[in-house]
Structure formats: structure tokens, C-alpha cells
Design a protein around this nucleic acid. Sequence first.
DNA 1: TCTTTATTTAGAATGATTATAATTTAATAA
DNA 2: TTATTAAATTATAATCATTCTAAATAAAGA
Lengths: 159, 159
Amino acid sequence: MISVEEQLKSMKQQMIAKGYKSTVQREATMRVLLEHERDHMSAEDVYMRVKERFPEIGLATVYRTLELLTELHLVEKMNFGDGVARFDLRSEDHEHMHHHMICSVCGEVEEIQDDWLTELEQRVKREYGFNVSDHRLDFIGTFASCKHGDCRRHCETAS
Amino acid sequence: MISVEEQLKSMKQQMIAKGYKSTVQREATMRVLLEHERDHMSAEDVYMRVKERFPEIGLATVYRTLELLTELHLVEKMNFGDGVARFDLRSEDHEHMHHHMICSVCGEVEEIQDDWLTELEQRVKREYGFNVSDHRLDFIGTFASCKHGDCRRHCETAS
DNA sequence: TCTTTATTTAGAATGATTATAATTTAATAA
DNA sequence: TTATTAAATTATAATCATTCTAAATAAAGA
């Protein structure tokens, strides 16, 4: 496990290597992302969290930074169909993709930390001549706890 | 294979059964969807096509109709992360879900008409207590033809 | 046909995201 | 270190997709 400071340093280096500048606003934004690794935050969420420590920052800057980080493959931009894009830091090993379970009762999004699709990606290549560079797998349904009306655990973070 | 007229009739019946009214605007919209079964049209696309034959129709009506049809599970609403929702008629057999290949060169979306996920859905239930009612699987990558710079076939419908 | 209620229309409103123009700042060279 | 230059930021306006509103219209049932 790499420390936050080390990750930050690495991200900054990647920025500079591609000819982008390292700014305090970008650093503040990256810090928030590092501290909320798998929270699926919207741009607005990130903005509010960054603003706590850097009140002068503008929303557009956060948008631009998230866009840049996505371009650098440091951040993953997702879309769960609720009208807002969500952002998460990409884990160190880019290969290791994860999947999502989206609860239709409480709206909570939970992760499956495995990659279950390597075989299927080979199949796509074989059968369709399609070379997969990335994928996305979401399951929609309900957690056992939610089905019983007792979805406290998943609901409290949702709202 | 059921004829367009028969499918239309069935859809109207389902509407009425749920207490909604059958209107000419809704019929015109459904007709367009029936004639573009797997085109992944945006609301705007549908609107323009409906307008050709029913020029008085309003965009909001198309949106409302698509929303209603989605609610009735007659239409599938999808989101490929490009900022617009896309709509397709659900095939007769609702079980038979399909997957998508999204080309990062030409933007074309193509379908895999199989359901490759039944096993994985059981695994989600076993390992996470999550009951899957639906899923979504997109592969992002490139078609062999596109990689060679010759992606005419896929590009011409993309724009 | 009459009545009731849903639906449509046109246009305004909203919410997320992106563009603009003026100002500031980071990186680099002198 | 300072000066230079291009990129980044700010605040705000603009845009795009989508939803809402109020008045007018049309469908279904009595």
C-alpha cells in the first residue's frame, strides 16, 4: 500500500510528464479523491469537499481537473443513469477492474473488487474481432437486507 | 416474428391495462421505435423521426412517452456516458439481455445478442446476497476494422 | 353526447456541464 | 532571482438535455 503523499507525488509527476501544470487547486482536488477512494462522488460532491479546505476554488476548475485526471487514466468516470457523472480514483493496477451492484431499493452502489470478465473479453475478441480495452459491468437488483425492508446499512449513505 | 401492427396493438393494450390512454402521439412514437428496433436512439433522434410524420408533436411529449414506455418495461433506457439517454424497444423475451461493444475509434455501438451473465448473476447472489433483476455489460475497445484505419462500416452510421 | 381526467402544447425552468474573457500563476530561461 | 510565456483559474454566461407549468385539447366511459 502506497501512502497518500506518495500517490499524490506520482500523480503530479504524470501530469507534468504530459505537459500539464501542477497547481494547488489540482492538488487539493486529488487529495479529496485520495481520501474518498471508492465513494463514487459526483463533481458537485468533490467540489464541496475541496471547498472545505480551499474555499476560493471554482466549480469549473473541479470539472476541468476531473476531466484531466480522467484523460490521464488516473480517475474513472462513471455514469449510473441518474444524470450525474461520478468519479473514482483508479487503483494502482489498472488491469484489476471492478464491477457494481446497484440497489434499486436504496440506490446504494457497492463494488465487486474482482474482475470476472477476462474470459468474456477473449470471447468478444474471438467471436467479434473486437479488442477490449475496458469494460463496465453493473448489476441492478436488491440486497437481501433491503428486500426485507431493513436496508439501514445500505440506505444511510445513500439518500 | 410478430408484425409491427400486432406489436403496436399489444403495446397499446398494456398501456390501457395500466390506466394510461392511447393517443396518436404515443402511437407515432411507438411506431418509430418499432421501425428502429436496435438503433439506440436518443430522445432527440426519436423526436426528429416522429416529427417527420407528425410535425405538431412536441419534444416534451416524446420524452414523456419514452419515460412511460420505460416504466412499462416496453423500452430500455440506456446510458453510454455521452450525456444523452438512449432508447430501444425491449425484445419480446425480456430474459434475453444483450451486451454492447462500444468502439472508441468510431463511436459505433454494436450488440451481442447473447446473455453471457447468467452464471455471474448466480455468483453475485451467492457471494453478496444481491438479487439481480437486470444488468448491463459494455465492452469498450476497437473493432479489428477500425484499428486498421478502415472503419467505414462502423463509422458511417456514427457521424 | 357529456363529463371527467389524462394528455398535449409551447415555452419557461432546471440542473449538469462547458465555454468565455480577464486575471493570475506555474514552469522555464536568462 | 527575476522576467517571460503559456497554461490555469475565476466568475459568469452559455449550452445542452431534460423536466415542469399552465392553458388548451382529446380519450374513455357513463
